[in-house]
Design a protein around this nucleic acid. Sequence first.
DNA 1: CTGAAAGCGCTTACAG
DNA 2: CTGAAAGCGCTTACAG
Lengths: 333, 333
Amino acid sequence: MKLIQLAKELNLSISTVSKALRDSHEISASTKKKVLAKARELNYEANPFASSLRKQKSKTIAVVIPEIDNNFFCLVIKGIESIAQEKGYHVLIYLTHEEIKKEIAITNLLQNGRVDGILISISNQTVNTTHLEELKQKNIPLVFFDRVADDIDSPKITTDDYSGGFCATEHLIERGCKRIAFISISPSLSISKRRMNGYLDSMKKNGLETDSSMIIQCSNDEEHNNQLIRELLSSTNRPDGVFASVEKDAISSYKICEELKLKIPEEIKIISFSNLRTAALLNPSMTTITQPAYEIGSAATSILFKIIEKKPIHLTLDKTIFKSELIVRNSTQ
Amino acid sequence: MKLIQLAKELNLSISTVSKALRDSHEISASTKKKVLAKARELNYEANPFASSLRKQKSKTIAVVIPEIDNNFFCLVIKGIESIAQEKGYHVLIYLTHEEIKKEIAITNLLQNGRVDGILISISNQTVNTTHLEELKQKNIPLVFFDRVADDIDSPKITTDDYSGGFCATEHLIERGCKRIAFISISPSLSISKRRMNGYLDSMKKNGLETDSSMIIQCSNDEEHNNQLIRELLSSTNRPDGVFASVEKDAISSYKICEELKLKIPEEIKIISFSNLRTAALLNPSMTTITQPAYEIGSAATSILFKIIEKKPIHLTLDKTIFKSELIVRNSTQ
DNA sequence: CTGAAAGCGCTTACAG
DNA sequence: CTGAAAGCGCTTACAG
């Protein structure tokens, strides 16, 4: 079903039909009515590529994330989709699998008009950010969420990661922990640094020692990470508290504790940043710092649309920092 | 960066440059080399809408699913993405939120060339399938997975749902359950019927009674579903076994048992279709029938590409049925 | 208020 | 082997 066919059916020119469909003020109400009716009857839908080519707009946004089998990112996508659907926009999904190489390949694909804007949470290998700078230079609207690139001047939606790191550590200390192991995401991520700084400051404030043996820097090799956690938890001076930056590592820690027959929370307490729906049902239920993932997704998307629509952005929106919530459960009892 | 600019830089016509970029046999090796080098240098990427309009191909597929905050669908997407990335395809995501109205709106958007193919798992409200039939009539490649529309002649990737339903029930009966409550997804879904038939046949085979009070037909109103489960579990002749078709309802059941102080598995046993990564860590760990979600996603996508590329499809692939796995844990001990 | 025509940026059949 | 030209299906500035 093309415009020309629709026009023939109506005995009108394609110009008139096209204008009627976009509700142009040049067209009479009666013509509009006839055109709309016919279009609906024949289920006419404009060819998206012809429209996009002509209008230089894609009606599409891209979401670039490191992984998808993770409740945080799933909920973020849900939030993104809710706003995009409202705006009649399409959503492309790209996974970097935590590889900078893939992230660059993806951003290259997005350089030439395929999308009107990009929402991105960078990979844990992303240190050099020239590929992101290039998007900026091409004036492609760009909004970061959660894992942001500090050196790029674009809106950033995050949670209060320093304070999350600090409060989680304070909580463990209040519950009697003295040797607290911090399991980091990649240390190069600023989100990871902020969480770790919160942890370090809380430890220092309470006069507790931290040494490198208590900080695990995770890589992308899951098995290797588990081995590091296993070694730490089975060492003679093992920690009495584990603070995981991502739920994946908390789950690993639970499994390794079971393996080593370490009792949570009696022998070791566990806390984690997590959006697990089952946190309350775990054995024992897990204390979490939970981010408002859905809200992060929808807020980032709203800001992206402000840029796309060239609306003014309040400076306060430009660096939106959501609060995360400490939910105390039995793993730190 | 447009083709015309690239051509000027190279002192060649745009035809030649275009052909060189697509490795046409009409172009000399030396010219190709020069063109490729320059294109890389200037980071040239063809305008996707111009290409798509001209070639009548979008290099994009759509994934239409009822929800995303669910481990099954997350893993499916991961499987889909792996194949799409390999093929250089883009992936659009659409959520129906279990609403037939949204499903129809989405399929209408996909009628006019926006995608080269569609992967869909239908909403639980989808009984009438004319909107899917229309896609077929427009020759848009279509592959169903998990929640399939039986009456549409398209490839369908599923798991052995009847046998999953049967084995789960047999397992509960072996463990001593006599009154087993089946929590269904929407009854209109064929996947739901198959699971329920497996349940019913196992009950009958073992001479156990089933009455309608033991079968909960879930709606899209989460709170209402929970209320139904709560009423059932607090009734005087409550079940001694719960078989949930989706993990969401199993999680609700766990929570309600806690609320009612019903001990799992002593007073009530629970089994569920589920891809929860934390199933083994729940209190108690949950017995699951687990579907190979990632494989379902990648298999469905491979078949979709066979259709897109007009390769012959073996009849055996057309109705691929994966095996799901019964993983016995403590909730049915 | 309606319509003819140009043009978005590519690709490809055809001419040379 | 290279290039001029048509055309994919729209939208919109312009003419009438």
